[in-house]
Amino acid sequence: MNPADNSIWLSEAVKGMKKEVYSNKEYDIFEEQPDNLYISLCNTAALFPGKFALVEQERQVTFKQFKEMVDRTASNLYSTYGVRKRDRVALLMVDSIDFCICFYALAKLGSISMH
């Protein structure tokens, strides 16, 4: 890395990235970024279905399992509780696999998680 370069990324890591300015600060971002967090999960689950996505004590969840749980939870939130895009939903949960499932389910629905 060039010492004059203020980037936090190594030169190999910034391939396929571009600079964008938000609030007068420049950031390195991926040019082909997913539309939302759920799309990122779908892409990762397709590439690495058997790899562990989440590990919590004795519980381990692969990316495929994680996506399936997120889909079921999003469906339940939508059909049973009427959660829709732009709804604000409070997540009063400890950091856990279940929290991650709910967080991603809300992202799939386009809802806003409040925690």
Results as ranks from 00 to 15, higher is better:
92 L>C: 10
84 R>A: 13
35 D>H: 01
31 E>N: 07
106 L>C: 07
99 F>I: 06
87 D>V: 02
25 K>A: 12
60 Q>W: 04
90 A>H: 01
42 C>I: 12
22 Y>P: 00
45 A>H: 07
53 A>P: 03
5 D>S: 15
23 S>I: 11
12 E>Y: 13
58 E>S: 13
94 V>M: 08
107 A>Y: 06
91 L>V: 09
26 E>G: 05
30 F>M: 08
54 L>R: 08
65 Q>E: 15
26 E>H: 04
10 L>C: 13
98 D>I: 03
27 Y>N: 03
40 S>G: 07
64 K>Y: 05
59 R>P: 08
103 F>H: 08
27 Y>L: 01
38 Y>S: 10
12 E>F: 11
8 I>E: 06
106 L>K: 02
69 M>Y: 10
90 A>V: 14
32 E>G: 11
22 Y>Q: 10
98 D>F: 13
1 M>Y: 13
3 P>D: 01
67 K>L: 13
17 M>P: 08
24 N>L: 03
48 F>E: 10
30 F>Q: 11
75 S>N: 15
23 S>G: 08
84 R>T: 10
32 E>D: 14
11 S>H: 09
93 M>Q: 04
79 S>R: 13
41 L>M: 04
83 V>F: 02
19 K>F: 08
75 S>D: 12
28 D>C: 13
45 A>L: 01
96 S>F: 03
15 K>D: 01
106 L>D: 06
2 N>R: 06
63 F>T: 06
105 A>G: 07
109 L>M: 07
61 V>Y: 01
9 W>I: 11
43 N>G: 07
20 E>K: 10
41 L>C: 09
20 E>H: 06
113 S>I: 09
37 L>N: 00
95 D>Q: 15
104 Y>S: 00
64 K>T: 10
109 L>S: 00
2 N>S: 07
101 I>M: 00
36 N>E: 03
14 V>G: 02
78 Y>E: 14
22 Y>V: 15
96 S>E: 09
26 E>D: 05
86 R>M: 10
85 K>P: 03
61 V>T: 12
5 D>P: 00
29 I>S: 06
90 A>L: 15
26 E>R: 11
16 G>I: 08
86 R>T: 15
76 N>C: 08
35 D>G: 15
97 I>S: 04
37 L>A: 11
105 A>S: 13
92 L>A: 14
10 L>P: 11
55 V>S: 01
91 L>P: 13
82 G>Y: 01
54 L>T: 02
74 A>V: 01
66 F>G: 09
57 Q>A: 12
9 W>S: 12
53 A>K: 02
35 D>M: 11
64 K>A: 14
42 C>F: 10
